[in-house]
């Protein structure tokens, strides 16, 4: 077992699944000779050839569009959109066609495609390279939206996404690509989709998050533990469909919930979780649900990026606030 980064885990999962399943192919801008701008597809061209590792013309809408045609023909395309801010032209195909092809043909045609894109801020990237786009997709029936938080989750969830018979939006937190290494067993075993993962057990408060923010959440939980406050940490992992029972069970135990996400606050996916807790778990709450999220402003260019990102202090403060309530 090797210690690898999240982006290496993505590469490992892609290579392994392409080896096992000849219907899997990858396509996107610079995914071939360059191995992808983040190197997620490094080495795949040499191993699998240009028919299955496709450098596409520079056209995001059609990268998604042709993936639908391929998928309807029984291939399993894994399309890469180079940066999350470039994904919007592809939304038309994903929302209008990928998400509903199975439904509108009564299962006659299906769309087993994966759309991968890096997402999130915090790497001092140029404009349009730091967007958190999960909520756009999570609103769309027929899709699955997955965000891994660690190398092992990236490996197992990407395998699951590729094997899933329906379209999956796989958002890779750019900041976590090389943030830390983890032992990942290349055993070809997928992790379950549609479930939240319990990252840390605790009894005093529940912290719910996903993607790169889990890093800050874990540090915050450790700091709180030093003070004797035991936070339970949930990695949502699959935002759609959302595994609310796991979250509700935790909140029933702790009575307090803090939701942490890097996307801006209004209409963020934290609002959906908070609303569901209000609907189904209000009476177990001992304090109002807190959200720690980016402010409702344009993702700043690198000079101000630091102030935009939710940080450990904010998370710790939010948990304390729930504990200090009444």
């Amino acid at each position: 077992m090797a210690e690898i980064t999240l982006v290496e885990a993505v590469n490992l999962a892609l290579a392994g699944e392409m080896e096992r399943d000849p219907s899997v192919l990858v396509l996107g801008e610079d995914v071939g000779a360059d191995g992808g701008v983040f190197r997620a597809t490094l080495g795949l061209l040499g191993r699998f050839g240009k028919e299955r590792v496709i450098d596409t013309p520079l056209a995001e809408a059609s990268i998604a569009g042709i993936s639908i045609g391929m998928a309807a023909q029984g291939l399993k395309p894994v399309a890469e959109i180079q940066f999350s801010g470039f994904v919007y032209p592809a939304l038309d195909h994903i929302v209008n066609h990928a998400s509903r092809l199975r439904h509108r043909t009564c299962g006659r045609l299906t769309c087993p495609m994966v759309l991968r894109t890096p997402c999130g801020a915090g790497i001092h990237a140029p404009e349009h390279h730091s967007e958190s786009v999960e909520t756009f997709f999570a609103h769309v029936p027929g899709l699955r939206v997955v965000i891994p938080s660690s190398p092992a989750r990236a490996y197992g969830l990407l395998l699951a996404a590729i094997r899933d018979p329906d379209p999956v939006i796989f958002l890779e937190p750019t900041r976590a690509y090389r943030l830390f290494k983890q032992e990942v067993d290349d055993n070809g075993q997928a992790l379950p989709l549609d479930v939240c993962f319990l990252n840390r057990e605790g009894s005093d408060a529940t912290i719910v998050s996903w993607g790169a923010m889990l890093h800050e959440v874990q540090i915050a939980a450790a700091r709180l533990a030093d003070e004797g406050i035991m936070a339970e940490v949930i990695d949502v992992a699959t935002l759609k469909p959302l595994d609310m029972p796991t979250i509700l069970e935790s909140v029933a135990k702790t009575g307090r919930c803090v939701i942490v996400h890097e996307a801006s606050r209004t209409g963020g996916f934290g609002a959906e979780i908070a609303a569901s807790i209000a609907e189904h778990g209000l009476l177990s709450l001992l304090a109002p649900v807190q959200r720690v999220a980016a402010p409702d402003c344009v993702v700043p260019l690198p000079k101000l990026e630091h102030y935009f990102m939710p940080d450990v202090d904010q998370i710790v403060a939010a948990v304390r606030k729930t504990l200090e309530f009444a």
């Binding site: 059609s62 569009g65 042709i66 993936s67 639908i68 045609g69 391929m70 998928a71 309807a72 195909h93």
Partner: peptide, 11 residues
């Protein structure tokens, strides 16, 4: 048109 290109690629 894009879907047709994907279908044709598979064929």
């Amino acid at each position: 048109c894009a879907h047709a290109v994907g279908v044709a690629y598979a064929l």
